[in-house]
């Protein structure tokens, strides 16, 4: 199973195995990773699963759709490498992916 590393804003990291087909958000929620709220449950409607993707992984993930960018406008402190973790589907190629959760979601 691909390993995903979740880093919080302080720099503490947790690496967990996430099943292929799940989203990075689901991986976090199922493993009680703090820092991701996912209030809307993954329907790309709330921007509370906002994360920063490690620069070297940005090109390996399909680009954000316009609707996702629109939601990121509303996220807390969006940056260039901002994504919604509910829109990143885990597969073998993402083994080793590193994401950072923001200081807060709202």
């Amino acid at each position: 199973m691909p390993k995903i590393t979740y880093k919080d804003f302080r720099g503490d990291t947790k690496t967990i195995e996430v099943e292929n087909g799940l989203t990075v958000m689901e991986g976090a929620i199922q493993n009680e990773i703090p820092g991701i709220d996912a209030d809307c449950g993954g329907s790309m409607a709330c921007a509370t699963c906002h994360i920063y993707v490690d620069e070297k992984w940005l090109n390996k993930i399909p680009k954000a759709e316009e609707a996702e960018e629109d939601m990121i406008d509303m996220a807390f402190e969006p940056k260039k490498n901002s994504r919604l973790s509910c829109q990143i589907i885990v597969n073998d190629e993402l083994d080793g992916l590193e994401v950072t959760t923001p200081e807060k979601q709202t």
Binding site: D39, C46, A47, T48, D73, M74, T106
Partner: peptide, 9 residues
């Protein structure tokens, strides 16, 4: 003026 939508609290 900030218009960033609504959040659930």
């Amino acid at each position: 003026l900030g218009f960033f939508g609504l959040i659930m609290k």
